[in-house]
């Protein structure tokens, strides 16, 4: 019954987890499109620099990146609050992953689509938003779903910043109650959230019914 009394604490943790998740998605998905374009740019320098950024983000642990921002950047006078640190670290990291997904999605669109647009005199922006982007979104949904659900689990890394996310609440009360029950509750909550998100993504995928 302790557990029921503690439910509001878990929900607070859940709120932080979902809040961070949502903010990161809302920022990183729109950012990833321009990054994907720059990465495919003909200008070798900007394309190379973008590739370097993406490789670093994918080639080092997110936890390390977060430590670097939180403990390293203050050395050169850049100080972020804990939650801001988390947002910045996750957005920079997830933008890199999403950008790679979008880039390969864009590349998978048959170049005949662009040529058909050219032959019909359709302007590039119209063609992109009406024809290319919808097809790209459809092809990347499975990969994006994967990242989106991984992000829910990744948010637990913010324990390093001392933020009270869902997993940290579980750990605190598991200690104080000397019981595994809080972990079970936390696991169930994660599972519910991820299941709901996966179902949502599936719905979106099905809505592209062409």
């Amino acid at each position: 019954m302790e557990i029921i009394r503690l439910m509001p604490r878990f929900l607070e943790g859940l709120q932080l987890t979902i809040g961070l998740w949502a903010i990161v998605l809302v920022l990183s998905i729109p950012l990833a499109f321009p990054v994907a374009f720059i990465r495919s740019s003909k200008n070798k320098l900007v394309a190379g620099a973008t590739k370097f950024y993406i490789d670093i983000m994918r080639g080092t642990p997110l936890l390390l990146q977060m430590c670097f921002i939180f403990f390293g950047l203050p050395e050169i006078g850049i100080v972020f609050e804990r939650f801001t640190t988390a947002v910045v670290a996750f957005v920079i990291n997830y933008t890199a992953y999403f950008a790679e997904i979008f880039r390969s999605g864009l590349k998978s669109i048959d170049k005949g689509q662009w040529e058909a647009g050219q032959m019909l005199g359709i302007s590039k922006p119209v063609l992109f938003f009406k024809v290319i982007l919808p097809q790209t979104i459809r092809t990347v949904i499975p990969a994006v779903t994967n990242e989106v659900t991984t992000l829910v689990k990744d948010t637990s890394l913010v324990y390093i910043l001392g933020l009270g996310d869902l997993l940290r609440q579980g750990k605190i009360y598991a200690n104080s109650l000397s019981s595994l029950a809080p972990f079970v509750v936390v696991g169930v909550l994660y599972f519910i959230v991820i299941t709901v998100i996966s179902k949502g993504c599936e719905k979106i995928e099905k809505s592209f019914n062409y």
């Binding site: 048959d110 005949g112 689509q113 040529e115 058909a116 019909l120 005199g121 359709i122 302007s123 119209v126 009406k130 024809v131 919808p134 097809q135 459809r138 592209f208 062409y210």
Partner: peptide, 24 residues
Amino acid sequence: VSQGLDLFPNLNVMDNITLAPVSR
């Protein structure tokens, strides 16, 4: 009319035909 036809798969027949004249 290219060999692959290159219809826009995400648009229905009507929108495939009208996208160019309307957007232009």
